[in-house]
Design a protein around this nucleic acid. Structure first.
Length: 278
DNA sequence: CGGGGCTCCTGTGCGC
DNA sequence: TGCGCACAGGAGCCCC
């Protein structure tokens, strides 16, 4: 599923395509994908498609921002938020028959298609995205100074959780998913099953550097298209060819030739090299 | 706080 | 070839 590099690739594409455009109309073909704020405030809930559409009609797009794996399409007032979860896609172009929602723009024939085979993805609307509980709960952005290796590492090393789980926890660090966690731990020589408490102080800086490296390289390659991921033009990313361990269980490690081992860590599949990672 | 199990869904790929 | 099951990049929930 889309992780930080994939969502960032889509963000860059969409910003170039959509900035300055005005929403003419929205077609909601599957009401399950749209949400809004309930009368109690704060909590997100499903809304009637017509309410979702009327909230967006006539809005002019100012900028497209990413926070963790969330996309925020900012208008002059208000924000459309999106999370793609496992199989969500935002593809600009001709209307797609499989789309769950389509956004039309004034004077533009092409539309923004929201597609999602598994329907875990969500679109919702917020007057003030800062009030959104899911955004507010996110940990620091890995590629920004918000993530200070010293203080972050100190907190990490107080946790008794396995490092794989800790890095997937969006409250601790935003934007990582299974692929980039697996790759960063390999580069760092740390087994995914190791407890955070057992991370040595000297391992923290390299870990942060490797997280940043895999995310930066992944973004430069326009993401990993393992299965469903596509950029905002519907094209695959090139990152899959450069993966060192993810999806390669049973094959030899490129560094030491030991056979890579596939394991489950708290229900998530991961891969490590028994020779290079401890 | 950690983590197991379950949930939301559909498609694919493997073993028999 | 066909069937059934495990599994898939996410994340929220309850419960122990």
């Amino acid at each position: 599923m889309p992780e930080l590099p994939e969502v960032e690739t889509i963000r860059r594409d969409l910003e170039g395509i959509l900035a300055g455009k005005t929403i003419a109309d929205v077609d909601v073909l599957d009401p399950r994908v749209v949400q809004g704020f309930g009368p109690d405030g704060g909590l997100r809930r499903r809304v009637a498609p017509e309410d979702f559409c009327s909230g967006l009609r006539g809005r002019k797009i100012r900028a497209v921002e990413r926070r963790g794996k969330y996309l925020m399409i900012h208008f002059e007032r208000g924000t459309l938020l999106a999370h793609l979860r496992m199989t969500g896609q935002l593809i600009f172009g001709a209307p797609r028959p499989e789309a769950r929602a389509r956004i039309q723009f004034s004077g533009v024939g092409e539309v923004l298609n929201f597609c999602d085979v598994r329907r875990f993805g969500e679109l919702w609307w917020a007057e003030d995205w800062r009030q959104d509980p899911s955004i507010a709960a996110l940990g620091p952005e890995p590629l920004k100074v918000a993530l200070d290796p010293m203080s972050w590492g100190k907190a990490l090393r107080r946790s008794r959780a396995k490092i794989q789980s800790a890095l997937l926890d969006q409250r601790r660090i935003a934007g990582l998913g299974n692929i980039y966690v697996t790759e960063a731990l390999f580069l760092s020589g740390i087994r995914p099953t190791r407890r955070c408490v057992r991370i040595r102080p000297a391992e923290v800086e390299p870990l942060v550097a490797n997280i940043r490296r895999v995310l930066t390289e992944g973004t430069a390659l326009r993401g990993v298209s393992f299965r469903d991921y596509r950029d905002a033009r519907g094209e695959k990313g090139r990152g899959r060819d450069r993966l060192l361990v993810y999806g390669k269980a049973g094959r030899p490690c490129l560094r030491c030739r030991a056979l890579l081992r596939g394991v489950k860590v708290n229900g998530r599949g991961t891969v490590y090299c028994p020779g290079c990672q401890s």
